[in-house]
Computed example of a mutant assay.
Amino acid sequence: MSTASYFVPALLWQVELEIKRSKFLTFAANASNREDAEALIRSLREQHPQASHVCWAYIAGEPNTTVRSMSDDGEPSGTAGMPMLKILQHSGFGDIVVAVVRYFGGTKLGTGGLQRAYSEAVSAVLKDLPTTLKVSRSALTLVFDYEYDGSVGRLISRYDVADMQAKYDQQVTVTLAIADTEIQAFHDEVIDVCSGKIIVQMDSGVVE
């Protein structure tokens, strides 16, 4: 089931923690798909070739998507990636990747210490992360006669609509992206204002 709206990172964000002389550089960024998430991870590996570990987790899509993954990157199993992913899962964020670049400081933290350190690192980067609200939208195409152009235009102005384009041929064709929460109400109203003389086509994909 689609999430109507959720917060996503507005930009690449970084914080740094030092725990028992180990440095934890934590990054958070927008990732609406696996490719975006993995691109950041590769970039950080290239920028920090001397790092002991580059551990990561991501939710690439809305908060309840199954497109998610994580990695301990050589840390003891379950001490980095999973704690990081759990923080993300409870954060309510979507379209997000976090990566922690660790420079070992000479003191072993132990299993529990590592879990706490990586959880703390992700919590810290999320605390003041600049965000933007992402609204799940679906694409609609409307085809109607010229006589209804004014009425449809006034109706559209009352709804949460983006990316609207109009084409004027033998009939008017309008394409737009409307908030998923408003589709049914809009559909019912536009049918009414056009006295049923309108074609409404919906794209099943989500428009960002």
Rank of each mutant, 00 (worst) to 15 (best):
V98L: 03
R34Y: 13
T26I: 11
D73K: 10
D36I: 08
E62H: 12
G92W: 01
P130Y: 02
S52H: 00
A39C: 12
W13A: 14
V97A: 04
T107G: 03
K86G: 13
T26K: 00
S22D: 08
E38P: 06
I19F: 05
D72E: 03
T26R: 01
A37F: 04
L17Q: 12
V98H: 03
T111R: 11
S71F: 09
T79H: 07
H53V: 03
A60G: 07
I19P: 07
F24E: 01
M70R: 13
N33A: 10
G74D: 04
F24D: 02
F104S: 08
S91L: 04
N30F: 15
R21F: 07
P130W: 00
V67M: 15
P83C: 06
A99R: 03
M84A: 08
E16G: 09
H48V: 11
N64M: 12
I87A: 10
G78D: 02
K20W: 10
S123K: 15
K127G: 08
T65C: 10
T111Q: 11
A39E: 14
S77G: 14
F24P: 06
A99Q: 05
W56M: 08
Y58N: 07
M70C: 15
T65F: 09
R102C: 07
D73E: 11
I41Y: 05
Q47N: 12
R42I: 15
R116A: 09
V97H: 00
Y58Q: 00
A29R: 05
G92K: 07
N30E: 14
T131N: 10
I59M: 06
K23H: 11
L85M: 10
T66V: 13
K86M: 15
Y118A: 06
A31Q: 00
L114G: 05
N30Q: 15
N30P: 12
W13C: 12
A99P: 02
V100E: 00
T79N: 03
L109H: 08
D72W: 06
F24G: 00
Y103C: 02
G113D: 02
Q50P: 05
E62M: 10
E75A: 05
S91K: 04
